[in-house]
Design a protein around this nucleic acid. Structure first.
Length: 289
DNA sequence: CCACAGGACGGCT
DNA sequence: AGCCGTCCTGTG
């Protein structure tokens, strides 16, 4: 059944969802601005829109969301045009490990998040835990992002590059970003004076795009790959963190290997679909290992 | 109190 | 190229 998008009063209702599980999507470690209200019930902010999403099987309700907002923002954000069933079939055939990992969470989708926000939040993710990353991002947004009301509650947009570029290091440090505070400030200054767009990254090719991002202070190979993958620029980006290293070594490689070599192995094995493979593996590893 | 988890960087070999 | 100490905050 094809996806149906229906406006019902103030809400937008989706029916016929396939490979869409809101819990897997929002808790697989790719985003930091969503909060759980209850089972399959989340509220979050992207750009200047807040959404409360409640999923029930193959249906989901976007509360206080007109159909036009769904089409303009959320459809792209949730990567609705991509055929995830086809991707899973393609990477799982002749690969029982990937079959197990994708069967564990076939409803994962890779979000297409705003570039500057993705870059800064993954700088914050360096040597950090997901709950702490969320707290730091929430503090920065409250300090430097404009506020908006949704269902009577105040939400804060992710800061504009200029707001973080003009902040002092002492102020940014109050977010408790720790040693990453100076990375945030330097990168915001650089980005603000020479703004980068997703299309710029797409036009120069994966290797050059990764090099470009790694010039920012606080951005190594892993953060660069996360940014390229989660802003929707390159689906072949395969970020190797400690969890992916662990699961790749245990299930595929059967020996210790450097982060760089694991990345090369994945590139050969998964190619253009590496980013999807990485997400199934990462979520499976974090939940089961 | 201590041990540990989580990546980038810079200095070293 | 690879190894290792340091950076900061929070949790057990």
């Amino acid at each position: 059944m094809a996806l149906q998008i229906i406006q019902q009063g103030h809400n937008t209702v989706l029916k016929g969802l396939e490979n869409f599980d809101i819990k897997s999507i929002l808790e697989c470690g790719q985003c930091f601005r969503w909060d759980k209200n209850g089972e399959n019930d989340y509220t979050g902010i992207v750009k200047d829109k807040v959404a409360r999403i409640v999923q029930n099987g193959s249906s989901a309700v976007f509360h206080d969301c007109i159909q036009q907002d769904f089409v303009d923002l959320w459809y792209k954000y949730f990567d609705m045009e991509t055929d995830y069933k086809g991707i899973i079939d393609s990477i799982s055939i002749n690969d029982p490990i990937m079959k197990t990992a994708s069967d564990f969470a076939p409803g994962i989708r890779i979000l297409r998040q705003p570039l500057f926000e993705t870059l800064i939040t993954f700088i914050i993710s360096a040597n950090n835990s997901i709950p702490n990353i969320k707290r730091v991002v929430a503090r920065l947004s409250k300090m430097y992002g404009s506020s908006l009301l949704y269902e009577g509650k105040e939400f804060y947009k992710f800061p504009e590059p200029a707001a973080l570029a003009n902040a002092t290091l002492e102020e940014i440090s109050m977010s408790k970003a720790g040693f990453r505070s100076k990375y945030i400030k330097k990168t915001a200054i650089e980005f603000n004076s020479n703004p980068l767009k997703v299309d710029d990254l797409k036009s120069i090719g994966y290797a050059e795009a990764k090099n470009t991002l790694m010039k920012y202070n606080g951005v190594g190979a892993k953060v660069a790959d996360c940014t390229l993958l989660f802003c929707g620029a390159y689906t072949n980006a395969f970020p190797v963190d400690t969890w992916v290293k662990k699961i790749m070594e245990e299930l595929y490689l059967k020996k210790d290997m450097s982060l760089r070599k694991i990345g090369e192995y994945a590139d050969n094995k998964f190619g253009e679909l590496g980013g999807y493979a990485q997400q199934y593996l990462f979520y499976y590893a974090r939940s089961n290992m």
